[in-house]
Structures are given as structure tokens and as C-alpha cells.
């Protein structure tokens, strides 16, 4: 039986992981390290209000999300539990890369904190945003009200909902266009997300990509020690260059959770732990059971499920 770790993307505004931080010394040690690498205080990483400046807010938020997912990994690792395959969405993909040795943790966090220096948009630049589009489950991914709009770009595919009725897509673009399409579409079909002011995974992020490129080029990447599933296409990243390519393209290319979990299924994953709160529980359908882990009680639930489904809790992944 094969265990996978799944890391979500995006940057939440709510603090998570405070209970885990209090319960697990290994997490406190990690946060001390992250604090040293990033110059952020543990409080800023863990729970304090995020900065208001757009890119700085995004940067600190990514540090927060990545640190929590990594901490959950370390809590399991301390108990002797490690995955056989790993996959992530956007930031989760990059964090996953660090968990399988494709990039050092320090370099990952230094990159995330470096992104705060991305120039802020001009004051008169049109507002950006993202929205979720809900389409019938069997419909093609182009079957959404924003399709063909010059200021709206398909930026993500989260797959089918747990009741099998709908497929959730992400659209990025100019906020005015998204709001206009949402207003004209049947209620609930296109839902702009409040406080998401960056058109992630779209061509509008080219300035960010260009700014970060020299930093990413200077980073050291290695071959992943375990199957690392891409969120940009359906495949495992097999080399250091593959991983570097993902780091470059992640800002501007559409992401797909379907690609991640289909790839994990292809690796034989029978059970996945969702590391941290970045994929809300119970909304999506997965091709294997998942256990969401962002509170202390979830650790026990996850390990119990692994035991019950026959994951060998004591054998190193290489021999499992």
C-alpha cells in the first residue's frame, strides 16, 4: 500500500497551525529555522496579520503556508512515517520539491521571502483578481462564462466536486472583467474571490516571473528522491532541470490538481494526507481516500487511517 502527500496552493489569510505549533516541538524547531532563513518572526510566520502591501503580503503568506505543510511532514517523519509519492499545487509543488530533496529548504524559503521585492503594481494599473468557475462535471474546461474573454485566463483546474456534480475551475484576470462575467452569469457559476488581488497562474504574472527568474536560476536543484508529481502537466518531475522549470513556469502557467492526483494515482497511491489547510476538506473528489491534516487530532486520524488501510508504518518507503 502506497502513501502520498498532497500539498495545496494559494495563500490563505487566516492563521492555521497554532495548535500544532503548541503541541509539537519538531514544528517549533522548524519555525525557528524558517525564521532564521527569512528574517520573519515566528509570530509573523505563524499567526500575525499579514502585511498589506500586495507582493509583501503574498510573500509572507507563502512562507506561512509552506512552513505549515513542511511542519506536518516533519511531525509524521519524526514518528517514522514518510510518503512514497508527493505532489503539490503551485506553492505546494515547490514545497513538495523541498520535501523530496529537489531543493534545499533554506533556498526555498529564501526564494519565497525574496519575492516580497517584486515591484508593486503601478497605482493606476487595473486591479487583478481570481474567481472560481463551477461547470457541469462532464463539461469541457472551456465551458465557462469567461471563456474567450481577452482579460480572463484559465488558471486552474481543481477537478470534480465530492458529490460528482460539478467541476471547479479557477480563472485569473482583470478584476473588472471577472466581476462583469460573474454578474452576467447564472448565480454561483462564477465567484470572484475577495482579497485575492493577484491574477495568479496567468500571463499577467509575467513581470513576477521575470523578476524571480535570476533568483531561481541561481538556486541549486537536484533530482527528486521520490516521485514528485507536477501540477503543470500530468507527469512526475524526473530531474533537477524539471524541477527548476516548474519553479519558473509556476507563476504564469495554469495549474491542475487533477494532474497532481492522477499522477499520484499512477504512482499507486492508495491513501493521501493533505498537508495543511490549503485544500478545504470534503469539497473535492479524489481517486483515493484523503485525510486532511492541520490540527493535532488529525495526526492521530491520519496515522490510524494509514494503519487501517494497510500502509506499513515502519518500513522505509524505498522498500515498501
Amino acid at each position: 500500500m502506497t502513501l502520498g502527500y498532497l500539498l495545496g496552493g494559494g495563500v490563505g489569510t487566516e492563521p492555521h497551525g497554532v495548535e500544532l505549533y503548541k503541541a509539537y516541538p519538531v514544528m517549533r524547531d522548524l519555525y525557528d529555522q524558517v525564521s532564521g532563513w527569512t528574517g520573519l518572526t515566528v509570530g509573523q510566520i505563524l499567526e500575525e496579520e499579514l502585511p498589506t502591501a500586495l507582493e509583501e503580503r503574498q510573500s509572507t503568506g507563502t512562507v506561512r503556508e509552506a512552513a505549515l505543510a513542511m511542519a506536518v511532514h516533519d511531525i509524521f517523519a519524526e514518528q517514522g512515517l514518510r510518503p512514497d509519492a508527493i505532489g503539490g499545487l503551485s506553492l505546494g509543488a515547490m514545497t513538495a520539491a523541498a520535501l523530496v530533496g529537489a531543493v534545499s529548504r533554506e533556498e526555498l524559503f529564501r526564494m519565497l521571502v525574496h519575492s516580497r521585492h517584486v515591484p508593486e503594481p503601478a497605482p493606476d494599473a487595473p486591479r487583478q483578481g481570481i474567481a472560481l468557475a463551477f461547470v457541469p462535471a462532464g463539461a469541457p474546461e472551456t465551458d465557462h462564462p469567461g471563456h474567450g474573454h481577452p482579460d480572463i485566463h484559465p488558471s486552474g483546474d481543481f477537478g470534480v466536486t465530492s458529490d460528482g456534480s460539478q467541476r471547479i475551475l479557477m480563472l485569473s484576470g482583470l478584476a473588472a472583467a471577472l466581476e462583469q462575467v460573474a454578474a452576467a452569469a447564472p448565480p454561483g457559476t462564477v465567484v470572484p474571490l475577495p482579497d485575492r488581488l493577484i491574477a495568479v497562474h496567468s500571463p499577467l504574472r509575467q513581470p513576477y516571473r521575470d523578476f524571480m527568474a535570476p533568483h531561481i536560476d541561481a538556486m541549486t536543484f537536484a533530482t527528486p528522491r521520490l516521485p514528485l508529481l507536477s501540477c503543470l502537466e500530468q507527469r512526475a518531475l524526473a530531474s533537477a532541470d524539471d524541477v527548476r522549470d516548474l519553479f519558473h513556469r509556476n507563476a504564469t502557467d495554469p495549474i491542475s490538481l487533477v494532474d497532481v492526483y492522477t499522477g499520484m494515482k499512477g504512482q499507486g497511491v492508495d491513501l493521501a494526507f493533505v498537508m495543511g489547510p490549503s485544500i478545504p476538506e470534503g469539497i473535492l473528489d479524489f481517486p483515493f481516500p484523503v485525510v486532511h491534516v492541520d490540527k493535532p487530532e488529525h495526526i492521530e486520524q491520519a496515522v490510524t487511517t494509514a494503519y487501517e488501510l494497510g500502509i506499513d508504518l515502519t518500513t522505509p518507503p524505498a522498500t515498501r
Binding site: L132, S162, M170, P280, I283
Partner: peptide, 15 residues
């Protein structure tokens, strides 16, 4: 049948 999971009513948390 499987152990009870919470169900989020907030898909905006997906990203």
C-alpha cells in the same frame, strides 16, 4: 463507510 470528515462550505479556500 469511512471515518467522518468535516465538510467545508467555503470552496474559496481552494486557492
Amino acid at each position: 463507510v469511512r471515518p467522518l470528515q468535516e465538510t467545508s462550505s467555503a470552496p474559496e479556500g481552494l486557492y
